[in-house]
Design a protein around this nucleic acid. Structure first.
Length: 993
RNA sequence: GCGGAUGUGGCGUAAUGGCAGCCGCGCCAGACUUAGGAUCUGGUGCCGAAAGGCGUGGGGGUUCGAGUCCCUUCAUCCGCACCA
């Protein structure tokens, strides 16, 4: 009987769905295990072969855990709010809810075909009001909370109000809480709320018409779409994630996450320890007298400059201060004489986009303000500069410049000819700054002679004693922008009364996303929600019109899966207490500083407020490697001189160079009316060889080489192009077959005819293939559907695992899939004629060896070696012609996590009426794998020469005796006396001569 | 610049400090076939006719023994980056 994957897979997928096989048991006495895949965004492109890699791995692990007796929660759902659907809506006018639903449907069909053991009854969609009701509810908790530094956790805002009422929490300007009006009270509280409305510099993306969070911006452009981003001061809902910076950092040490993710988060949080120092200012026009007198006079000046430094030990090396162009003091302190230049500079700095600024890091710019600060220890005057190498958003937006100890300060000083003082012995300040934290202090008054680390301690104490500043910890992490000027997201449950924001009452949740006529901003620049007609809270108050960012819904979804249908709470206490946290979380590393930071933040917050009991959302996290696609690249030649369809002869008369010669050699002469010349990859290779500097030559001639990505499906297995298919596609690029010529090594193709000029050489047109990220725009997406159709889900599952270690990125290549497909056929064949006979020793040995290896490997998530272990096992059992139930039945249970359909089918054939899902995992019995003898490799000076079979019971001494007595040993000794004989039991014999 | 990861046959890869290359692809030969992108058998790191020698990016070290441990260096990929 043949292995018919299609029929078998459909049958069991249906069975699982009907019997709800994968719903966790409602029995809290069972040990729990929670396996979660990162929330997918249902993109319009559907699933490609890279997506299932992680899902397959987590599915194998889930099924394995079920077989081990765990109550497994393994859910799936959709992060269904987001920008792409909305961009599509803007283009087509279709409601994003409609396209999102279509995409989800397609995703689901594709997922279903792969035989995943998800409990679909728990599916959540973030765009569903029954889900986002609770996202909004959590927002309200965040709004109604503040971070109490004394208890080091978030508390209800009421506890802050109490402190304000009794005056134990100070309000800026020493005002009294009870004397404040409604607006002022709101403002005061807003300064502490964890979700707050505040004015801040944000990443504004004009093309997308919205603000983006820091992690959504890469290299100065938006991560989605690659549109330019600019800094803009805006009133904006934000999350005070910075209050959690320290806990987010230390928490990393408690979780088993990949080192690279933890490191990314550490970098992102960017903790640095140092101290703040206040520099008094001196206006030359205003103050006169000796340096020391001035110091006293200006000590308490409001307009002092506060800096943050991690190297207070270098304080005596300060030769100037630099302010960020955005620093508020710049305009206040600039002297009349410098006003013009400084203003011009500020204007220049302002108009440089973030991208430009980042791109030309090396360009040093700045201006002297004319103002001086006073060195707090020496009393000397220090010029104050403004420079855009200082970032407004970090620290205080001002630095004390120590060109002797900081390379950026050094470069600035060199550029503007400012003095440089070495402060560490042995610094060669003519060449570069000495940033080392090792060495002895010099030129530093009372710090002289101290080691850097001692000096840091001493100076901080001194600074604190003199009241100039204090030891301080600074974080790079910024508060997260939470409002998006977009339509397709959760409405923020806030309304405005007399311009004051208030929380929507819990009983009025969800605030449902209103219908709008267009998904665009209003004429006066308000977000799309402002278009909604008659959308008022309690019929009279304006709602907040920004929506939440994509990460809102995904910051707590793992909790909702525990209790997805609860309409009283976001998760019941009982469910949260049982399922606690995610035991095994699998997903891509691209979420390192976005989702994975926010989900930790919300988890900590929800714990602080007593809603859940865990501090971290996921104990263990693994990043599956990215599966890249193979892009097909074609060499495409255009002569710039040959405009339009000008004849090729013109091209031929160009100066002699590589390509012209080639074209000549290929004898394509005369006048042709083709315009597109495509060059086979092997012909292009030839050019490389022929002319050393092909690329350079290429640029000299009046033609241009272009490389195009073309659809990968037009490439044959041998790497050659299917020219016919390709030509049918050409019109999409406004090119035609008629105008195209394909040059191969042995001739050229034109209009379906091959013209040979070099007989014996290939007439194939080769395409260069390169691995790249799979993306629709690169035409290299391979989707799993066809593979499932052809080979079956079990084969695809095993093949994806067989590709290599889970965490390693690799290009997708279908070449090896026949090996796995053949394996499953061979596996199936073992079961054609099962006998009840007792198994032989040899057969039992194979089985138990396999049980041990598979169990160990699944535990280690080493799924690639699992597949090869099964192959070895099946090869060996086939050689033994094994058909014993005693062997084959446990083997079914063993393979079920990887190839669940075939396993169910065979399990069923054994007469079981229950799913193999809950069959007990086979137990490894060592007695079946022990050997009586071992074939010792006998080596001389570490080089293996022959093997000797010996009883394992023999002691080391006996082994040595036996081996030394051998004729072969004597032969290799060549009459010499061995210096030493090393015997490792059941491993090796090494004779040192 | 900082951090992370990876370097092993033609390719994907495998090896608790103990026979390097398991398993699969590809390739070669053969069997069965009208046929093979089906199935089965055998072979396949490199050099060499063979004996044998050489081999895990390079160089050094520890060890009886190193792909594996240590030092150093190179290359590739990924992340972060004017963070004071």
């Amino acid at each position: 009987m043949e292995y018919t994957h299609k029929e078998i897979e459909e049958r069991w997928q249906k069975y699982w769905a009907e019997k709800k096989t994968f719903a966790p048991k409602n029995d809290t006495s069972l040990p729990k295990y929670y396996v979660l895949d990162m929330f997918p965004y249902p993109s319009g492109a559907g699933l490609h072969v890279g997506h299932p890699l992680g899902y397959i791995a987590s599915d194998i692990y889930s099924r394995y855990k079920r077989s081990q007796g765990f109550n497994v929660l393994h859910p799936m759902g959709y992060d269904s709010f987001g920008l792409p659907a909305e961009q599509y809506a803007i283009q087509t006018g279709q409601h994003p809810a409609v396209t999102t639903e279509q995409n989800i449907k397609r995703y689901r069909e594709q997922l279903d075909k792969l035989g995943f053991s998800f409990d679909w009854d728990r599916q959540v969609k973030t765009s569903n009001p029954s889900y986002y009701k609770w996202t909004q509810w959590i927002f309200l908790q965040l709004f109604n909370s503040w971070y109490n530094p004394e208890t080091d956790k978030a508390e209800a805002i009421e506890t802050l109000i109490q402190k304000l009422e009794v005056g134990s929490w100070k309000i800026e300007g020493d005002k009294k809480w009870n004397e404040l009006n409604e607006k002022e009270k709101s403002d005061v509280l807003m300064d502490s709320r964890i979700a707050y409305l505040g004015e801040a510099f944000v990443n504004w993306c004009p093309a997308l018409g919205t603000v983006l969070a820091n992690d959504e911006v890469k290299d100065g452009v938006s991560e989605r779409g690659g549109y330019p981003v600019e800094r803009k001061l805006m009133k904006q809902w934000s999350m005070r994630i910075t209050d959690y910076a320290e806990r987010l950092l230390t928490g990393l040490d408690t979780i088993d996450w990949s080192e690279s993710i933890k490191e990314s988060q550490r970098n992102w949080i960017g903790k640095s320890e140092g101290c703040s120092i206040r520099f008094a200012l001196r206006h030359p026009e205003l103050v006169s007298g000796s340096d020391n007198e001035m110091l006293k006079q200006v000590q308490h000046d409001e307009n002092s400059i506060e800096v943050f430094t991690t190297r207070p030990d270098t304080l005596f090396g300060i030769t100037f201060l630099t302010l960020a162009p955005e620093h508020e003091l710049v305009s206040k302190i600039t002297t009349e004489g410098n006003k013009q230049q400084v203003e011009a500079y500020l204007n220049y700095a302002k108009n440089r986009s973030e991208r430009e600024r980042q791109a030309d890091v090396k360009k040093i710019t700045g201006q002297f303000t004319g103002a001086y600060a006073i060195h707090p220890f020496t009393g000397k005057q220090i010029p104050v500069w403004v420079g855009d190498y200082v970032l407004a958003g970090y620290g205080t937006g001002a630095v004390m410049a120590v060109p002797g100890g900081d390379q950026r300060d050094w470069s600035f000083a060199k550029h503007f000819s400012l003095p440089i003082i070495p402060v560490i012995e042995g610094s060669d300040i003519d060449k570069e700054a000495n940033e080392s934290k090792e060495g002895k202090m010099i030129n530093s008054d009372f710090l002289n002679g101290l080691q850097v680390k001692e000096a840091i301690k001493k100076i901080i104490t001194e600074i604190e004693n003199r009241g100039l500043g204090k030891g301080k910890i600074n974080f790079r992490l910024r508060d997260a922008a939470f409002g998006r000027q977009r339509y397709w997201g959760e409405p923020i449950p806030i309304y405005y009364k007399d311009g004051i924001p208030y929380a929507v009452d819990e009983k009025d949740l969800p605030v449902v996303l209103p219908e709008v006529d267009k998904f665009l901003p209003t004429e006066d620049g308000e977000p799309p929600l402002a278009r909604a007609k008659d959308w008022k809270y309690q019929g009279q108050y304006d709602y907040e019109s920004t929506t939440m960012p994509g990460w809102a819904g995904s910051s707590w979804y793992y909790l909702r899966y525990m209790d997805p249908h609860n309409d009283k709470e976001f998760v019941s206490k009982a469910a949260a207490d049982y399922w606690k946290d995610v035991d095994f979380y699998l997903g891509g590393s691209e979420h390192a500083t976005g989702h994975l930071l926010y989900v930790r933040f919300w988890t900590k917050f929800l714990k602080d407020r007593g809603f859940i009991s865990i501090e971290e959302p996921a104990k263990k996290l693994v990043n599956q490697g990215m599966i890249q696609g193979f892009s097909a690249k074609i060499n495409y030649l255009v002569s710039e001189e040959r405009k339009g369809n000008a004849p090729l002869t013109e091209f031929n008369t160009a100066p002699i160079n590589g390509k012209i010669e080639l074209i000549k050699n290929l004898s394509i002469k005369g006048t042709y009316d083709f315009a597109e010349i495509f060059l086979s990859a092997d012909a292009a290779e030839g050019l490389h060889k022929q002319f050393n500097d092909y690329e350079m030559e290429w640029n000299k001639i009046p033609s241009k080489s272009h490389i195009w990505n073309i659809p990968i499906e037009y490439v044959n297995n041998d790497g050659s192009l299917n020219i016919n298919l390709f030509c049918e596609w050409l019109p999409k690029l406004e090119k035609t077959r008629k105008n195209a010529i394909f040059i191969c090594k042995g001739g050229y193709w034109r209009n379906n005819d091959f013209c040979s000029f070099n007989s014996g050489e290939s007439d194939k047109f080769f395409i260069k293939q390169e691995p790249e990220k799979m993306s629709k725009s690169k035409w290299n997406v391979v989707n799993p559907d066809e593979l499932v159709e052809k080979y079956g889900a079990d084969t695809l599952r095993m093949y994806e695992m067989f590709l290599g270690p889970l965490e390693q990125s690799k290009p997708w290549n279908t070449n090896g899939i026949t090996g796995v497909s053949g394996f499953l056929k061979k596996f199936w064949k073992l079961y054609l004629n099962v006998s009840e006979e007792k198994a032989s020793q040899a057969e039992l040995k194979v089985l138990h060896k396999t049980i041990k290896k598979i169990t160990d490997d699944i535990e280690k998530l080493s799924f690639n070696t699992c597949v090869s272990t099964f192959m070895i096992c099946v090869n060996e059992l086939s050689d033994l012609k094994c058909n014993k139930r005693e062997i084959l039945e446990p083997l079914v249970v063993l393979i079920a996590p990887l190839a669940p359909h075939i396993a169910e089918e065979l399990w069923n054939k054994f007469g079981h009426t229950e799913s193999v899902t809950f069959a007990k995992w086979p137990e490894y019995k060592e007695e079946h794998t022990v050997e009586n003898s071992f074939s010792y490799p006998v080596s001389f000076n570490g080089k293996t020469r022959f093997f000797q079979e010996l009883d394992v019971a023999l002691s080391k001494e006996d082994v040595e005796k036996e081996v030394m007595a051998l004729e072969q040993t004597q032969k290799y000794l060549e009459g010499k006396q061995p210096k030493k004989v090393i015997v490792v039991h059941k491993k090796i014999v090494n004779i040192v001569v």
